[in-house]
Nucleic acid binder design. Structure first.
Length: 555
RNA sequence: GCCCUCGUAGCUCAGCAGGAUAGAGCAACGGCCUCCUAAGCCGUAGGCCGCCCGUUCGAUUCGGGCCGAGGGCACCA
């Protein structure tokens, strides 16, 4: 609809210029947007004000010239007004909005899809938690964000596979192995103290006991230390990863690929990345270490890629990893990171620039921490003591729908309070129930219609003119916004826009539901309202689907 | 000290590429079920959009400077 008006305005401007009413100017940037107030019409444009300077005329005069040339024959515009400093307000015919209803129902599950992505391949990388322990709630937020971003991007015409980068190399895996090994020894009677800075969680003890019970683990304590650590690390890492995959599955997060850091190192990808940087003269040795000239690309300081002890840094494998992503043909990369890693962004962007890439080809979406509450009181969590609430515990307690929706009720870069009791509440406090309840009301009406023997109308053949109430047209307006809302959320990488939209749509529908009965005696009115209600149900279901939240028939 | 993010109703937060009288939920107060699920709806009240400059016809939105909160500044991951 906005595009239609926008096109009409562009044409009117060309006409006005051609006829000499306005000086020849190129069309400036302008917007057509929905109005905040009903007496400003349905849509408004600032075109006349944008033209004020180039035309050197009063915006209101320009607006009049434009309106005079406006082609209103198309049938969507009822009337226009010039208001304020030079806004052109458009009052549209109700039928223009109602026309979206049969379109929604004809499109079904695909309503809202767009082709903004034009088939571009973007890779969404998220979670990427070290396989050294179970996922916690913070990971859960990142998981939902990444998963929903991918769903949104796919819906908007991108190819957007999801990937998990597995930090299975480096010394945190050795630390994991050592942690398991020491617990194993303790289980066998050793009184050696548990080392600091190792993984203290209870799950380590469980893993140690399990490992000792396996044939390969039986001889663990008789092996040389290095061998035992390596065995314990591999075994524990694999077990933890299996758990992580289960947790993600329970959270309806589908990851297409798990990309192993170890495979990068072993496959020579890191050396190839060094080679590429070296050819550009971007590596140098100093103090026994190998450095990347990150300062040439805006980073604060140069960064070590190979330590003086010969080990490569995490940064080095990350460079190789991102290079690999590009080599796989992705035109855009999206990384979802914890906000505590934000200082790392310039470094990676510098590396991409060093590899001859545009830094903008990578977008890092930062996700802030989650404060877990119960009845408003913080739930004690201590990483140091190894005590934390796992994602699995939260999902088991409140359900995947509730957790997913609530994780998306804030912009990702704002901290989020997550109250377990609110998440479970079946009340207004809980927005997911509010939205789902709206959907079940649609279904409930349909059930009632079936009971009463009322046939579902054919949307394309139904006369919608009985939908003359303000609330009805307003509802149709809101439904018509869905496609552009989805596209905006996808391009801005802001899934929370969908959550807010759904909450508002549900509110508008609840209000309508209370004000108007759908199944009324007048068959024409009843049929028209049924079409409206069907369309509301469709959009609610599509929106919830994008968030990975179910749209229940009954509650 | 430097860098990043954030300061909007009592609380938690939206505000889409700068637009006309700044929104929602919760909390508070007052109403609505012989009627498609009251897990709902209607109404009332509540605001120097942190402060100061600047750009603009117009700034909550953009830029600069303060003040305040959180985070980051490793040959850790």
């Amino acid at each position: 609809m906005k595009n239609t008006i926008s096109d009409l305005l562009t044409a009117a401007l060309a006409q006005a210029c051609a006829s000499g009413e306005l000086p020849e100017v190129t069309a400036p940037e302008f917007v057509v947007e929905k109005t905040k107030q009903a007496d400003h019409g349905d849509l408004a444009s600032n075109l006349a004000m944008q033209l004020a300077r180039p035309c050197k005329k009063n915006p209101r005069q320009i607006a009049e010239a434009l309106v005079a040339q406006l082609d209103t024959a198309g049938g969507v515009i009822e009337r226009t007004e010039i208001a304020g400093p030079g806004f052109i307000n458009f009052f549209l015919k109700p039928a223009a909005w109602l026309a979206v209803l049969p379109q929604i129902l004809a499109s079904g599950e695909t309503f809202g899809q767009g082709d903004a992505g034009a088939g571009q391949k973007v890779l969404v990388e998220f979670v990427s938690a070290n396989p050294t322990g179970p996922l916690h709630v913070g990971h859960g937020r990142g998981a939902v964000l990444g998963d929903t971003l991918a769903r949104l991007l796919e819906f908007s015409g991108f190819e957007a596979p999801r990937e998990y980068y597995l930090n299975d190399a480096g010394n945190q895996m050795a630390t994991l192995g050592k942690s398991v090994l020491v617990r194993a020894r303790q289980l066998k009677g050793s009184d050696e103290p548990f080392p600091d800075n190792h993984y203290k969680g209870e799950y380590i003890k469980d893993l140690a006991a399990e490992l000792l019970a396996t044939p390969q683990g039986a001889g663990l304590l008789d092996m040389p230390e290095a061998e035992a650590v390596s065995l314990a690390a591999d075994w524990a890492g694999a077990g933890i990863l299996t758990g992580i995959k289960d947790d993600l599955a329970a959270f309806k997060v589908n990851i297409q690929s798990y990309f192993s850091e170890r495979s990068l190192v072993g496959g020579g990808a890191v050396e190839r990345a060094f080679e590429a940087l070296s050819q550009r003269g971007l590596l140098y040795e100093s103090e026994g270490a190998l450095w990347f000239k990150a300062t040439e690309f805006g980073d604060e300081k140069d960064r070590v890629v190979k330590r003086s002890n010969g080990e490569i840094t995490y940064f080095a494998s990350d460079i190789a990893y991102h290079l690999d992503k590009f080599n796989r043909g992705f035109t855009g990369l999206i990384d979802v990171w914890g906000a505590d890693h934000h200082g790392y962004v310039p470094r990676v962007k510098a590396a991409l620039a060093g590899l001859g890439r545009e830094p903008d080809e990578l977008t890092v979406v930062l996700v802030q921490m989650v404060n877990l509450l119960r009845n408003g009181e913080p739930v004690a969590m201590s990483t140091r003591g190894g005590e934390f609430v796992t994602l699995r515990e939260v999902v088991d307690e409140v359900g995947s729908d509730s957790a997913r929706f609530l994780f998306l009720t804030r912009r990702s870069d704002a901290q989020l309070d997550f109250d377990l009791e609110v998440a479970k509440a079946q009340s207004m406090d809980n927005p997911v129930f509010y939205v789902q309840y709206a959907h079940t009301r649609v279904k409930s009406i349909l059930r009632k219609a079936a009971e009463q023997g009322v046939a579902l109308p054919d949307p394309a053949a139904t006369d919608l003119s009985p939908l003359s109430g303000e609330a009805e047209v307003a509802l149709a307006r809101r439904l018509a916004e869905f496609p552009e809302l989805v596209q905006g959320a996808a391009l801005a990488l802001e899934p929370h826009r969908v959550t807010y939209y759904l909450h508002e749509l549900a509110g508008a529908f609840h209000s309508y539901y209370n004000a108007c009965h759908v199944l009324v005696e007048d068959p024409a009115l009843s049929a028209a309202r049924l079409v409206l209600v069907l369309a509301v149900g469709r959009v609610l279901a599509n929106g919830l689907g994008l968030l990975g939240v179910s749209a229940p028939e009954k509650m």
